[in-house]
């Protein structure tokens, strides 16, 4: 009688441990699942001003001539990157729906070939999902010969769906050396 109760208890404990270990493993996985979840969340809400690193699908959009949005361009260098990096113009007045092109100037200041990548960030974050790029140097690693400098293009448009209270959008690139 006591024997069977103890055996039953041992089985119940084993079952419990198995289940709880499963929960533990699932939560460990959940920690990693938070990474893609976070990216999705960023894209939906513009959390932290992350923009998609991909070419936007070009669908024709109605140009909203009545509205003007200021787009500011900002360039930063991550520490230790021996580069010159600056926008061609600091700001542009744009109409939502229309494509515009501007350039950023980058120059390798060392006497060795170097690669780097520009990482975009948009402020306010809510504007990030309304900022479409069809051409951008930030999509790829950029290789520069020793002392080479060049203009790098970015072609973008602002979605007319941009919330009406956003009047200035800042596009910032930080140049990281690989």
């Amino acid at each position: 009688m006591v024997e069977t109760r103890e055996a039953g208890l041992a089985a119940a404990n084993r079952r419990m441990v198995r289940r709880l270990l499963l929960v533990t493993a699932a939560m460990f996985g959940f920690g990693f699942a938070l990474v893609p979840l976070y990216d999705v969340l960023c894209q939906v809400t513009g959390l932290n001003g992350k923009t998609s690193g991909r070419v936007a699908v070009v669908e024709p959009m109605k140009v909203d001539e009545s509205r003007t949005v200021t787009v500011e361009f900002v360039a930063s260098l991550n520490l230790g990157a021996p580069w010159e990096f600056a926008p061609q113009v600091t700001r542009m007045q744009v109409h939502p729906g229309q494509f515009y092109q501007t350039h950023f100037w980058a120059k390798n200041l060392t006497n060795q070939p170097m690669t780097g990548q520009a990482i975009p960030s948009i402020s306010p974050g809510l504007a990030a999902s309304h900022f479409q790029k069809i051409e951008c140097f930030c999509f790829n690693h950029q290789r520069f010969q020793a002392g080479e400098g060049r203009q790098m293009p970015v072609t973008f448009r602002i979605d007319p769906e941009l919330p009406p209270d956003v009047r200035t959008v800042t596009l910032s690139y930080t140049f990281f050396q690989n």
Partner: peptide
């Protein structure tokens, strides 16, 4: 504990 300690383990692994 069993809900969040594994998440800590995951993130420090990252």
């Amino acid at each position: 504990l069993i809900a969040v300690m594994p998440v800590l383990a995951g993130t420090v692994t990252m």
